[in-house]
């Protein structure tokens, strides 16, 4: 019973469930689309150049969208009492963390694959095809941090009295640094300001953020999922 087999069993179970109910995918996708429409009416009037705001708009949307999904990721385990079933299994708790993080990451990516092109169509004037790998890198690094930290905190808030209220209160202030870096890096790509210096610093920062919180989660997850 290797950790890899258990990892894929949990991931497979979560994805099967999500693909059957489409609870998270549909509602988060609609939320993301509606946010973009609202941004248009909030910021874009005739001839306004939104380029400087694009990174912020994109990440605020994804952050809150991810929050919706994170809240659900343990809801099923908790509501149906399945968490006990999972904890009864001879599985390293960190494997549960990694599988849940991966499931959240895949869902977020699935939404972004559609949402980023739509966002580009709506708000980005420059064609950034040449810098697409850079954008993909920024998105992947930022998503990993969002999902790792979010999964850890969702585990904690799952056992509280009002989990959907608690998660944003804990999660948002902690994710601020990642949001700042992802925002400015994304804006730089959209604006064509991809001189390597600043962007590299941000990419390294995002990678470091991911690493720090993966390690922190590794050290504390046993306690977070606890008894």
């Amino acid at each position: 019973m290797s950790a890899a087999a258990q990892f894929s069993a949990i991931l497979r179970k979560d994805l099967t469930r999500e693909l059957r109910t489409r609870e998270v995918l549909v509602s988060v996708f609609l939320f993301v689309m509606l946010s973009l429409v609202i941004f248009h009416y909030a910021f874009a009037s005739e001839g306004n150049d939104l380029t400087f705001f694009t990174g912020g708009m994109l990440w605020v949307t994804f952050l809150f969208g991810a929050l919706l999904g994170l809240n659900r990721s343990f809801a099923q385990e908790k509501d149906e009492g399945c968490l006990d079933g999972l904890l009864l299994c001879p599985v390293d708790r960190v494997t549960i963390f990694l599988a849940k993080t991966a499931a959240n990451l895949l869902l977020l990516l699935a939404i972004q694959v559609v949402a980023v092109p739509v966002f580009t169509l709506f708000f980005v004037e420059r064609s950034y095809l040449g810098d697409l790998p850079l954008l993909v890198l920024v998105v992947l690094l930022a998503d990993l941090g969002i999902c790792a930290l979010g999964t850890l905190l969702a585990t904690i808030s799952m056992n509280s009295r009002a989990r959907d209220l608690l998660l944003p209160v804990l999660f948002l202030p902690l994710i601020v640094p990642l949001l700042i870096a992802a925002t400015s890096a994304t804006t730089a790509v959209f604006a064509g300001d991809t001189g390597l210096g600043d962007l590299t610093v941000r990419l390294v920062f995002l990678a470091a953020f991911d690493a720090v919180f993966l390690v922190a989660a590794y050290g504390t997850y046993d306690f977070a999922i606890g008894e």
Binding site: V176, I180, F213
Partner: peptide
């Protein structure tokens, strides 16, 4: 006991986050 455990985990993570935040604010 659960409250104490969660509070401890959060205090650890928050403390790690503060210097990272300070670093990030300089991107402004």
């Amino acid at each position: 006991a659960r409250r104490a455990t969660y509070a401890a985990v959060f205090a650890i993570i928050a403390f790690v986050d503060v210097p990272i935040t300070f670093f990030a604010t300089r991107f402004l």
